[in-house]
């Protein structure tokens, strides 16, 4: 099932993250739309250079944390003061100071799990994900800039020239067959079951 490779990307390779930041700012100023940048480590200022909005993960953490506090207080008040009120150590049924530690722990628990869960779901990170790897060196020592040619009005030659101007070490073209879409667990498992680990097409392969 040889599919036509109709997704064309121009890849620029950078070693130095300052060159990368300058390069991206300059290229974007000259009208190049950048698909994505892949780095081995977080580069500070890269999200600004790419014009991304600030991460909203803190808000997710706050929402889940507030849910945790609410659940914890409701649970403790219901169990200790409503469902089976008991006098323990001469305290009132609603011994509020005693409810602080558990409320705090549940706030932290839900905030942490909720936020990390949101992060994994939103970024589609999961054990059976088969990522599209533009250049394998992106997890080693190079910063990989991918430009989707279809999304740009500039020609391949013009973008290549701009990459060179931005001190990219290497510029080359990569073509893919299909969109980078999410893998389903079923297709991953079926492929693994029928082809095994060694011949599975769902195991990330290298160039």
């Amino acid at each position: 099932m040889a599919m036509e490779k109709d997704k064309h990307y121009l890849i620029g390779v950078f070693s130095d993250h300052d060159d990368l930041l300058h390069g991206i700012e300059d290229m974007r100023a000259k009208g190049v739309k950048i698909y994505e940048v892949y780095s081995p480590y977080p580069v500070h200022g890269l999200e600004h250079a790419l014009g991304y909005k600030r991460s909203w993960m803190p808000r997710a953490a706050f929402a889940f944390g507030a849910l945790g506090t609410t659940l914890a207080i409701t649970m403790q008040v219901y169990m200790m003061a409503i469902d089976w009120p008991m006098i323990i150590g001469g305290k009132s049924y609603l011994a509020v100071p005693d409810f602080v530690p558990v409320s705090f722990e549940m706030t932290v628990l839900l905030a942490a799990f909720g936020m990390v869960g949101t992060f994994l779901v939103v970024r589609d990170l999961k054990p059976y994900k088969v990522p599209r790897i533009f250049d394998i060196r992106a997890t080693d020592d190079k910063h990989i800039v991918a430009v989707d040619l279809a999304a740009n009005s500039l020609s391949e030659e013009q973008i290549t020239a701009l990459f060179k101007e931005a001190h990219a070490e290497e510029v080359y073209r990569r073509d893919f067959e299909e969109d980078d879409k999410s893998t389903s667990f079923i297709s991953y498992a079926v492929d693994l079951f029928t082809n095994g680990v060694t011949r599975s097409s769902r195991i990330p392969t290298h160039r």
């Binding site: 994505e36 940048v37 892949y38 780095s39 081995p40 480590y41 977080p42 580069v43 890269l46 999200e47 790419l50 991304y52 600030r54 991460s55 993960m57 803190p58 953490a61 944390g65 705090f104 932290v108 905030a111 942490a112 936020m115 990390v116 992060f119 994994l120 939103v122 970024r123 589609d124 990170l125 999961k126 054990p127 059976y128 994900k129 088969v130 990522p131 599209r132 790897i133 533009f134 992106a138 997890t139």
Partner: peptide, 26 residues
Amino acid sequence: FGWTGSAKDWMHYEAVSLILAGLSTP
């Protein structure tokens, strides 16, 4: 988990790490 190191992943990753650190401290 299919990590590629994309700039968007790193951006969220850094926010998540910082919040987790902020939660773990208390």
